[in-house]
Amino acid sequence: MIPTVHITEVIKRYGRNTAVSGVCFALNAGEMVALIGHNGAGKTTLMKLMLGLLRPTDGSIEVLGENPAAGQFSARRHLGYLPENVSFDTALTARETQAFYARLKGEPVAKALELLDVVGLGAAAARRVGTYSKGMRQRLGLAQALIGRPRILLLDEPTTGLDPELRQTFYDVVQRLAAEGTTVLLSSHALTELEERAGRVIIMNRGFKVADGSIDKLRNLAQLPTKIRLKVSGLAPGELPHWLPSFAPCRRLNGHVVEIDAAPEQKIELLRHATAAGTALEDVDVIPPNLDELYAQFLRQAERMP
Rank of each mutant, 00 (worst) to 15 (best):
M1K: 07
I2Y: 01
V5N: 05
I7H: 02
I11N: 08
R13S: 15
R13Y: 07
Y14W: 13
V20C: 09
C24F: 07
A26N: 01
N28K: 08
A29C: 02
E31A: 05
V33N: 04
V33F: 01
L35K: 02
I36N: 02
G37N: 01
G40E: 08
G42V: 00
T44Y: 06
L49I: 11
P56E: 07
T57Q: 07
D58H: 00
D58F: 10
G59D: 00
V63L: 09
E66M: 07
P68C: 03
A69E: 06
A70R: 06
G71W: 06
G71C: 02
F73S: 11
L79A: 02
L82Y: 10
E84K: 06
V86Q: 06
D89V: 12
T93Q: 12
F100G: 08
A102V: 11
V109P: 06
A112R: 05
A112G: 14
L113Q: 11
D117P: 09
L121Y: 14
G122C: 06
A126N: 15
R127N: 12
V129M: 13
G130Y: 03
G130E: 13
G130D: 13
Y132E: 08
Y132N: 07
M136R: 00
M136G: 05
Q138C: 04
Q138G: 08
L140N: 09
I147D: 12
L153M: 04
L154G: 00
D156G: 06
E157S: 08
T159K: 03
T159E: 04
T160S: 15
L162K: 03
Q168F: 09
F170W: 08
Y171M: 12
Y171S: 00
V174M: 00
R176L: 11
R176C: 11
A179T: 05
G181V: 13
V184I: 04
L185T: 09
L186D: 02
H189I: 07
A190D: 14
L194H: 01
R197W: 01
G199T: 00
V201R: 04
I202T: 00
I203T: 07
F208E: 15
V210Q: 05
D212P: 01
G213E: 08
N220W: 07
L221R: 15
Q223G: 11
T226L: 01
I228R: 02
I228D: 11
R229S: 11
R229P: 04
K231A: 12
V232S: 02
S233W: 11
S233H: 09
A236E: 09
G238Q: 01
H242R: 08
H242I: 08
F247A: 06
R251E: 10
R252M: 01
N254D: 15
G255Y: 11
V258P: 00
E259T: 01
A262W: 02
P264R: 08
E265F: 06
E265L: 06
K267N: 15
L271E: 10
H273S: 02
V284R: 10
I287T: 11
I287A: 05
P288Q: 02
L291I: 05
E293N: 03
Y295G: 03
Y295C: 11
R300K: 14
R300W: 04
R300F: 04
P306A: 12
